[in-house]
Amino acid sequence: MRFDDEPLVSGEHLPIRSDHDSRGRLERVLRAGVFAVTAELAPPDSSYPEEVYNRAAMFDGHVDAINATDGSGANCHMSSVAMCALLTRRGYSMVMQISARDRNRIAIQGDVLGAAALGVCNILCLTGDGVEVGDHPEAKPVFDLDCMSMLNMVRGMRDDGQFLSGRKLTSPPELFLGAAANPFGPPLDYRPHRLAKKVAAGAEFVQTQYCFDLEKFRNYMSAVRDLGVHEKVYILAGVGPLASARSAEWIRTNVPGVHIPDNIIRRLQGADKQNEEGVNICIDMINELKEIEGVHGVHIMAYRQEHRVVEIVERSNVLEGRELWHPGVARDEEPALS
């Protein structure tokens, strides 16, 4: 997919538009009203950059942006800032996740500036899972900020050009700001208001927790629309393939915030190849979510099943014929989109 002001060198950032906050492709795609596709990628347990490149290449030509998780599930991996730096320089559009769990305001503001200097255009602010669920449960949980105060702080850096302390920046970061949302966690009737609060704090796009319960999600979106929030924020609904009924059962018991209804588990149990059925369910979800008013895209979280993302995108036809750039491909042969 090409814009009419594409840079001559493939992989370089786009020029910034007056009504945009970043030079990134994700913001361009969403603001152009295109149904966007993002996918999550956990950084490797490695110091070898090729592992990062190989992982990202699995999504080539099929996603608008890649989320680099920041110690997801409170487990230790390569830092999201490093993975984003490596991949951004290859031309990938990255969403850098920052969790409030591991760093205080001094470290986070430093990382935001550093990431922006390295070319990161999208930052997603998270509170983060508690250390108790991860592989270092004895670690000190920081939580100096929460997702909301972090959003507010990063927006202040961008819009007011200053640190939280009020000290001025010489050059503010150009960033498209994101947040996460869980429409399925109690208190359910507060969740739409919580989204409104995240927008008030600075969120311009949100990616939701896995959507497996369409009825609940439709109710949530209807309340979101009643509040008018869907017109102020781009909502990307979270989806993902379940490997088997057993793993679905494990996820819903052990992963905080993931809600998988019984009918999904039964559908998996009844299938000959549960793995394939997991992909089928994911594709069905995408097709249903696409039709919901106020949903601007999908966010595919295929942890340890990243190789299936291409199949999910192709079979669901969620790109609707859009051809996406990836490293090694010239942009000048595609029709331009203004």
Partner: peptide, 18 residues
């Protein structure tokens, strides 16, 4: 998590803390 801005996404279905 010392959150001062509302419930995180990890709240259990029965409303207990993650």
């Amino acid at each position: 998590k010392k959150i001062r801005n509302g419930p995180c996404g990890g709240v259990h279905v029965d409303g207990t803390c993650e």
